[in-house]
Design a protein around this nucleic acid. Structure first.
Lengths: 219, 219
DNA sequence: ATAAAAATTTAGGTCAATCTAAAAATAATT
DNA sequence: AATTATTTTTAGATTGACCTAAATTTTTAT
């Protein structure tokens, strides 16, 4: 049984290792958890003892199968609650994160099973991230940062990488939502910004940062 | 800002003082919280420093106005979540307590405001307990233990005092729910049990304990 | 290949929340 | 009223989750 804090560490480690990297470093963890490397050092030794990660001194950590299962269970809960907040309590996609961070730690298998059913077993959360099923299985849709596409490409927004309020509110202003169609009209070499068209709206410029954080599926 | 544990102590103290008693004793708190009196002694000194209770050594504690507000906010959340679980996630009234004990500590005024609206601003929870509004105001319906009524009385079940699964499941078997009409057919002096009729069902005997925990409104 | 820089770990400390054992205060009983 | 019993508090320890400062290891750069 993991404590709330341990769950947060494990989730962070899992997310850091999602990017393909096998070994996750102490500093990287300290960064996401917003804590000191010394504290992380402490904690990863505890998580190692609990069997959810493998830790070798100075070499970073790797999530075990047991750890992956636990991490996915927390992620599943987080994303299901986000769906609930947006679809039933009228939250906007930039308001859900902090609350879901709390709700994800509620321990009740029955609750999650029932919530899942109530929501109609959704497959993605309001940011387009896939929701693992009860067994931790999920299918990641083929998607890439808008930045990677070339001039003239046509794509559909499927997810966002950054889920900060600032970014999401900016997208709202632009009219960029999940399912919105994007056409790349022009790529500016100078600063990697680009001019795009969202659905039938007039063309707009977006910065490199925005394009990096918009995950799209090419048509 | 109170910690989860502090909230639980405060809630317990508030509930203990609801029964009219001004001063709540260390042992009584230890009993409900299932902790040792020494730990309670520690904690009530902390809660006193935080201003939510007034503590005088060896004399017990009393909830302050500020404390009452905080306690009612937790109770409001607990009861709103119970309504949600029963009305939308198909929980039965004997399954909600433990989950609501966790959900009541989620901190998000927006969440509670929206949940309240979603649920249609309910006035009572699945056990008949009144739900305080955002300002902590609630109206307790006039009700008394069934045990207090005399032979021949007619009443309606409005709430339950005990909310343990064991008790609630027993009530389910008897067919006793909120809103069920009760007629007292006979009171047995020997053991304080009684024979009652629930709605149009055949008469049944109930023990003194059951009658003490059924809160009714006389007709 | 060595020195400097960066990352990581250890040592030692703090705070919240608990505990046990012992001391002190209050209440009950003869 | 004095003694006994009960309740409450204090003292001292423990565990989880953090911190700072110092030591160690690894990496990078000269």
């Amino acid at each position: 049984m993991l404590s709330l804090v341990e769950e947060n560490y494990l989730k962070a480690i899992y997310h850091l290792s999602e990017g393909g990297k096998e070994q996750v470093s102490t500093n990287a963890i300290a960064d996401v958890i917003r804590t000191k490397p010394a504290s992380v050092s402490d904690m990863i030794q505890r998580l190692d003892r609990k069997g959810v990660i493998n830790y070798t001194k100075y070499q970073g950590v790797k999530v075990t199968n047991e750890g992956k299962e636990a991490a996915l269970s927390v992620i599943r809960k987080h994303r299901l609650w986000e769906v609930f907040l947006v679809e039933h309590l009228n939250f906007s996609w930039d308001e859900v994160h902090e609350v879901a961070e709390q709700l994800e730690h509620i321990k009740s298998p029955l609750l999650i099973e029932r919530l899942d059913k109530f929501l109609g077993q959704p497959k993605v959360d309001p940011h387009g991230d896939p929701i693992p099923d009860a067994k931790g299985i999920f299918r990641a849709k083929p998607q890439q940062p808008l930045q990677h596409l070339s001039e003239g490409s046509l794509a559909v927004i499927r997810a966002v990488k950054d889920t900060s309020s600032a970014f999401l509110q900016h997208l709202d202003k632009l009219g960029a939502h999940l399912g919105t169609q994007v056409k790349i009209l022009e790529k500016v070499e100078f600063d990697n910004s680009m001019q795009i068209q969202l659905d039938q709206s007039p063309p707009v410029f977006i910065s490199n940062q925005v394009a990096e954080n918009l995950l799209v599926q090419e048509k």
